[in-house]
Design a protein around this nucleic acid. Sequence first.
DNA 1: AACATGGATTAGCCCCGCTTCATCGGAGGA
DNA 2: TCCTCCGATGAAGCGGGGCTAATCCATGTT
Lengths: 315, 315
Amino acid sequence: MLDYPLLAALAAVIRTGSFERAARQLHVTPSAVSQRVKLLEERLGTVLVVRGQPCTGTAAGQRLCQHVEQVVLLESELRGTLPGLSPADGPVTLRIAVNADSLATWFVAAMAEVPSCLFDLVLDDQDHSAEWLRKGEVLAAVTASAAPVPGCNSHPLGALRYRATASPGYMRRHFADGVTAESLAGAPCLTFNRKDRLQIQWLRLVLSDPDPARIPTPPTHWLPSTHAFVDGALAGLGWGMNPDPLVADHLAAGRLVELLPGRPLDVPLYWQQSRISGAALAELSRAVLRAGRQALHAADGDEREDGSAESPSAR
Amino acid sequence: MLDYPLLAALAAVIRTGSFERAARQLHVTPSAVSQRVKLLEERLGTVLVVRGQPCTGTAAGQRLCQHVEQVVLLESELRGTLPGLSPADGPVTLRIAVNADSLATWFVAAMAEVPSCLFDLVLDDQDHSAEWLRKGEVLAAVTASAAPVPGCNSHPLGALRYRATASPGYMRRHFADGVTAESLAGAPCLTFNRKDRLQIQWLRLVLSDPDPARIPTPPTHWLPSTHAFVDGALAGLGWGMNPDPLVADHLAAGRLVELLPGRPLDVPLYWQQSRISGAALAELSRAVLRAGRQALHAADGDEREDGSAESPSAR
DNA sequence: AACATGGATTAGCCCCGCTTCATCGGAGGA
DNA sequence: TCCTCCGATGAAGCGGGGCTAATCCATGTT
């Protein structure tokens, strides 16, 4: 068996980002942590931690850290069937990949239902969620891609409804003569990041022009923050696809209006969980599916339209 | 994190069945092992090992032992991606449930292709294989029940072909006037154990009488050993369903004959592997599926007949 | 009844890993 | 440029955890 006191120190350093915090977590002095990590590095003949602010793991270090976390997860399951084993030295931390808009709308509700464990959330902006799942770097993911990661249980969550919204002032400025392909081509829109294709998809949907060349490509602001995105629309910076739960109040109050009322874009979301460690995730999974059912729209949207054949990549 | 040196000692005792052998395996004295286990028991306030010949684990002890093995498995995967970690203190032992006839025919060929790990085979006579898989006591199983254990990958292997065989002398004694329902009712047959329903199934198949009450229940010998089963047929004790690979030579040489030539019973087999630890099992899985394809018959038997709706429970 | 086997116990020692304290190095600021 | 602070590292020294060795004890055997 491996030397787990040593490995635990390494994992603590990489997770907390500093020798000092790791020491506090392990209830020893920083020197002890340093010695443990050093010893591990000498035995392996490799650098495991890149010293810096914060300290991070090298490839090998991260792999070891990941192993430690898998073992900790197994331990938490063990504790479930064998109470009184030994006081857990801290609640389990589940690393989960979530897309930004889910995090901003419904996901925290699910997290709140599982107060017994900690979360280490990773935003999958870069669409790395599938890769992370495959490599075991996250235990589960909320993803917009239905593409099933091999060996993972995939559950449909429902669809997050996006509405094309802008401020009334913006509407007067740019769409006084109606929302047409021409006016859309000149009106600035908001885009979350390079991967965000929601605006384009909506355009394609509502213009229903099969020729992609005739879909306008409006000038755009880049706003990689869900709430900044809403604020951008409120401020009249541009129009953008915003999650329904975030703009419902603004729409009701008239601070925002839909470009084309009743033409939302539904993006189906999926909950994928790695096969490693079923039991530890079971509670969270239940909560996520419940929260998803509550906040999202059933796969067959009751209003109309979903993301067409090309699977929309949610933010 | 748990105290793994202590747990390793416990697991070694339970697996080897004695403190002395455990000590040899861990390169320490039996006293050290005894102290480790004792300490663990004191900390938990529970007995973990029932001292005896051999030593076995209590429920709690077995659960801990199982945890250790899961961790060891994770370690073996870690070693795969991180060579030079530390010399593995012994090859990994994979605990697999296999039905007796598979073990006697084709399964060892698959094992031989994976010389890098050790095997701890469990015969699933009692049809506990599903339960074992669910509880994580075995990592994978060759089972005759298609019933998919939740959370397990299940692959069809093909069908093991059984032939109703007896010695020529036996045939003359009991079936001189032909194999009929009447003669079958009086001719002694062989049965592997209380769970073995192959003979009954074959009778139902060949007599094709929908009324189960009219299926004869011949007098039977109980022979819970695959090779003894063949020997029993050779010796003229009775007739029985024997795996084709074991009796092909005898049939060709005339030492055995089929009760009804060309009327075999095909029992489909499945390879189910637990979700824990994919990579460590991957090589074995490939070998098993390859060996299965070679030795077994494709699901759609090319000769005729399979086990009907009621899934046959192979031995 | 003596013996063999295998686990438990105890004493004692050694070494491992911790703390304490000093040092070093880099980042940020006057 | 020098100073200062923070945080990682190194050396020394101590304490205890865990080992070995020797003995004890229970069980079952000849």
